[in-house]
Simulated scan of single mutants.
Amino acid sequence: MGDGSLLEVTSADGATIGVEVVGSGPSLVAMHGSTADRSRWAPVREALSRHFTLYLVDRRGRGASTGDPDSYALRRETEDVVAVAAACDDLPGYLGHSYGAVIGLDLLATAPDTIAAALLYEPPFDIGGHTTFPPGFLDAYEDLLAAGDREAALQMFYRAVIGIDPEPMRALPIWQARLAAAHTLVREGRIGLRYAPGQEDFADVGIPVEILAGTTSPPVFGAAAEAAASAIPGARLTWLEGQGHTMIDADPDGFVRKMLDFFPR
């Protein structure tokens, strides 16, 4: 049983990964997306903890995770998940949102035996003429960071990439965590979003996998979800009618129902 205490695990490169453990039931490792930390799961944390022992990870470079080296690679984050999974009391499920879903794809390609099932919500990567970032976005974003205006950078991200008005988001407690992690978007955008899944990468996947995509999200998210689902043997693609990239905030009850429908309890 998790009581909300903080667990620290050591990843393959020596980085310390902080994980909040809360709830009871089968283990479920949750990896948040860009410009966030484990508090991203606050809208669904209490409901999910009634059914699962949640391992809420602070992805490297933010929150309780320390020792992140200057040289970034997607594979380092995958190794972080492997280290967290090894600390679970049972073979965990994996829940990844946004960039956390990209990490989940790399985990399925390299270490699928470390998890029992994977539910991935809109993994973002460029595919089939669809791009995650508009031309010049990351350069303009970096300029705002260099000028010390994280607020403007983050608002630009929500408008230009996620396609929503950031004003309601600014009122949420997660906004401060997003500001603190704003700089990590650059490395994920320049390196991680080059990820391109191919069928040969997932030949060893034999666990349940479901990819979720909202019908109101920017087209690149749906295209990437379709590509990921088609590359993974037996994977299911589910379209969420009327939902966007931030379903966790807009419809937390519906999000929890999807978790309960998919993961065994």
Rank of each mutant, 00 (worst) to 15 (best):
G100F: 01
L108T: 00
T114P: 00
T131R: 15
D106Q: 11
I127T: 15
P123L: 08
A111R: 14
V84R: 02
L119S: 05
L120K: 09
I127G: 00
P124G: 12
E122I: 11
E122Y: 08
L119K: 09
F133L: 11
A85E: 00
P123I: 11
G93K: 01
T114V: 15
P92R: 04
F125G: 08
V84T: 07
D126R: 12
T114F: 00
V102A: 06
C88A: 06
A101Y: 05
F125M: 14
L119D: 00
P135H: 12
E122N: 09
A117G: 05
I103T: 14
D106M: 09
A85F: 07
P92H: 04
T131L: 08
T131G: 06
P135T: 13
G129K: 13
V102W: 00
P112L: 11
L108D: 04
P134V: 14
E122P: 10
L91G: 01
Y94E: 01
G96K: 01
T110P: 07
E122M: 11
E122H: 08
Y121R: 10
T110R: 15
P123W: 07
A118V: 05
F125V: 11
A111H: 15
A86V: 01
T110A: 13
L95R: 01
F133P: 05
G104T: 04
P134C: 12
L120P: 05
I115F: 05
P112Y: 08
V102S: 03
T114W: 00
E122A: 07
V84Y: 04
E122D: 07
A86D: 10
H97S: 12
Y99H: 14
A111I: 06
A117M: 07
L120V: 11
D113I: 03
G93V: 01
A86M: 02
F133A: 12
L119H: 05
P92L: 10
P124Y: 13
P112Q: 12
L91M: 09
G104A: 05
G128C: 07
G96C: 03
L95A: 09
P112V: 04
D90Y: 04
G128K: 10
G129W: 11
A87G: 03
T132G: 01
D89C: 02
A87C: 04
P124W: 13
A101P: 07
A118H: 06
D89P: 01
A87R: 02
G104S: 08
I127A: 08
L119C: 02
A86N: 08
A116S: 15
D106C: 05
P134I: 14
A118G: 06
D90P: 00
H97V: 13
G100L: 03
D113C: 05
P135K: 14
T132S: 09
H130Q: 15
P92S: 03
D126W: 12
P135V: 13
T110S: 15
G129Q: 11
P134E: 12
G128T: 08
I103C: 13
P92D: 06
P134G: 13
I127E: 10
T110I: 09
F133T: 09
L95D: 00
Y94L: 05
D126G: 14
Y94D: 00
I127P: 00
T131H: 14
P92E: 06
P134K: 14
A109R: 11
L107H: 10
T132Q: 12
L105P: 09
A109L: 07
I103N: 06
A117Q: 10
P112K: 11
L119E: 08
G129I: 13
L107Q: 09
L107C: 09
I103E: 02
I115W: 07
H130S: 08
P112C: 10
T114K: 13
F125I: 12
